[in-house]
Amino acid sequence: MKKHRYDYLWIFSLVYLILGFFNILFAWIGLLCFFIPLFLSIVTGTKLYCNRYCGRGRLFSLIGGKLGLSRKKDIPPFVRKPWFRYGFLIFFLTMFFLMLWNTWLVFSDARSLKEVVTVLWTFKVPWHWAYRGSIFPDWAVQFAFGFYSIMLTSTVLGLITMIFFKPRSWCVYCPMGTMTQLICRLKSKGGMKRRTDFDRNRI
């Protein structure tokens, strides 16, 4: 099969994770993985990001598929059920808003900057080596620590399910995927009248 440029997007994901070990401020770049999928699904009404450009998905299929670090077994059926997917999305968004709240607390001087990365919402890992002061305000740095925690947590979770189940198991319950699919569902319902019989939307 012909290789495309976007087949190498796993490099972006990997570099992002590595950069977070050196300077936490790079975590801000991760917002791209948040806004681009939403933008693409709102504009095109498809899951173009998941289907083509998701670097993390590519990384998992590389490690789990090509490098063989996956058992390639079926995922437990409850993971693909809507209650679990939407439940996980709500949980994830709650944690996201909690992170924004922490950023707000630092912004309003109610709390000082905490140089820790919280993995799997529980384990507080000291991460002071990735920040040696900058021209940026403390809240921006706190956001970077918080956002990197989210990105690292989801990668760790994705890697665990990659090992136990199929390489891209994360895609089944990825909150961004659930969110973009929800947008597509709402969009397709709105445009039901002008829907043709079968729209071959080749990707």
Binding site: K47, N51, R80, K81, C171, G177, Q181, R185, R202
Partner: peptide, 29 residues
């Protein structure tokens, strides 16, 4: 009903027989 529309199937299909229909589910031709 339980398809995540992730498009993994599209990437491996040697005959281009699968497409993701409007970000909702994978459709086999």
């Amino acid at each position: 009903e339980e398809c995540a529309a992730c498009g993994c199937c599209v990437l491996v299909c040697p005959h281009d027989a699968i497409t993701v229909y409007k970000g909702l589910y994978a459709a086999v031709d």
